[in-house]
Amino acid sequence: MTAPARSLAEVERGPRTAPPRPAAVPEPPPRRARRATEDPPAVRWALVAVALLFVGAFVLVPAATVVAEAVRGGVALWWKALVDPDALAAVRLTLLVAAIAVPLNALFGLAAAWSVTRFRYAGKSVLVSLVDLPFGVSPVVSGMATVLLFGAHGWLGPWLLAHGVKVVFAVPGIVLATVFVTFPFVARELIPFMEAQGVEEEEAALVLGATGWQILTRVTLPNVRWSLLYGIILCNARAMGEFGAVSVVSGHIRGVTNTVPLQVEILYGEYAFQAAFAVASLLFVLAVVTLVAKQALEWHHRPRRPTVLRSAP
């Protein structure tokens, strides 16, 4: 072992404990750059402790409380709260809304990412900003916008009412609000990835005579599938968990227009604490499933360079 290549243990002990070197061997130049990672152990442990403390206090303890409260009265009571007709209706509605909103936004996200990363045109940056808009707007405002547009006194409301179409305070309104709020997730996930990937593969396919549809299904989609799935998972988690926007447009009709998060709030407001936490535990399970799926995807798909034959540098 040569002197400049220090072992890991030496690095961790820091420069002060490093054995003295023969004067003939020159000091390695990267020493300065390494400094940042050579904070005294006390500092490092303090930072780790602070991080753990924060995660514990703000994430783990509340999560554990939800689970503990949910089963406080026993598993039988927990189950009874879940199979209550109103709770079941809320679960069905949440699944329905996600089943409509998520594919719509997956499709839209793909289209937006494709158009943004594969073409050049005026106003592209405006489009990208607009895609991000729902992230910047409070969900309550999103909900109110839906009411203002489709409500009985809204812009389109009177016409819809005259034609017997119910939008706000019915399932379509809830879907619309959810679509709006979860709009950016897939596009946001895909745009940077597709940008980094470049257009070479598609161009190659084009040169080989592929049609647009063939390029999409055989080149683009297979390339972006992990990013797409990742975006869909996040989009789904938000669609099922959305509260603010949905609360404004729901009308809170029991067993009809209450989603799972609304049901939790209602039960809590009715002093049915145990039932509220039991239903909330469903959302907690959703969070865990999302986390595991996200982690699994990250394991499966470590960021690597797209397998493209590039010209030599």
Partner: peptide
């Protein structure tokens, strides 16, 4: 010309099937 078939096509399909199932479930219950 033959376009080389990418190896992993099934996840996309599986995903589509999953959505179809969930959507069917939701519509049926509604």
């Amino acid at each position: 010309p033959e376009i080389p078939r990418p190896q992993h096509r099934s996840p996309t399909r599986r995903l589509a099937a999953l959505f179809a199932c969930v959507a069917a479930l939701g519509v049926a219950s509604a």
